[in-house]
Amino acid sequence: MSDIHALSGAYAVDALDDLERAQFERHLRDCEICSREVESLRDASALLAETSAAAPPAALRDRVLAEIATVRPLPPVVTAASTPHRRRRLPAFLAAAAAAVVIGTGGVVWQQVDDDGPESRTEQVLAAPDAQTFTQVLPGGAEATVVRSKELNEAVLITHDMPAAPNGHAYALWLQHDDVMVPAGVMPPGSDNEVLLSGDAASANGAGITVETAGEEHPEPEGDVVVTFDFESEA
């Protein structure tokens, strides 16, 4: 039994940290044994709640019933070819646009939109008077910075000492609009990069980098999250 299978019990009782949880959920998609085991262990863990039952105040019932009256239940998941796990909401028009993004091992899908001026678009963003900077330091010491100019409606990702993506994988870039992660390009190989993100940077409320399988279409993040940026967090 490889190590990852042994996490089924800890997963069933939410005893994994965020990274392990993401890794294990990925594993669950391919491992029928663990999926079955998690289902049964969750039922077992629910038994523990029998020992802590405590009636809530009556007012909670009123609040809950009033609240649900204002919300429609989600539609059922209609069986589709793709995996139902961890699906993120993605409006159809975005999905269509996103389908064009393909992570290639060597091929670069994104590129500077225009080089017609004396400054590249990237340089314009970095020099923009309204540029906002969001920096994150990764566990290994690598640094990732997003610079955004709302006026130019562009964002640039700058990396330093970024470790290479695992074999057969690439770093995918995303702009977050509400809860939807919209593809914003792929990072080229190399530890130090300046990448102009594609998409609507001005209205985005965040950005992220994930590790995805190279050479596949990724309309939404599926792999491990490397780092996220919250555009509303600026002090």
């Binding site: 042994a6 089924s8 019990g9 800890a10 069933a12 009782v13 005893a15 079955r36 085991e37 289902e39 049964s40 262990l41 969750r42 039922d43 077992a44 863990s45 038994l47 523990l48």
Partner: peptide
Amino acid sequence: RIRDGLIRLRDTMGVGA
């Protein structure tokens, strides 16, 4: 330990798969 404990609980109580 967590997994073993859950499995024993599950089997003792006869729940799950």
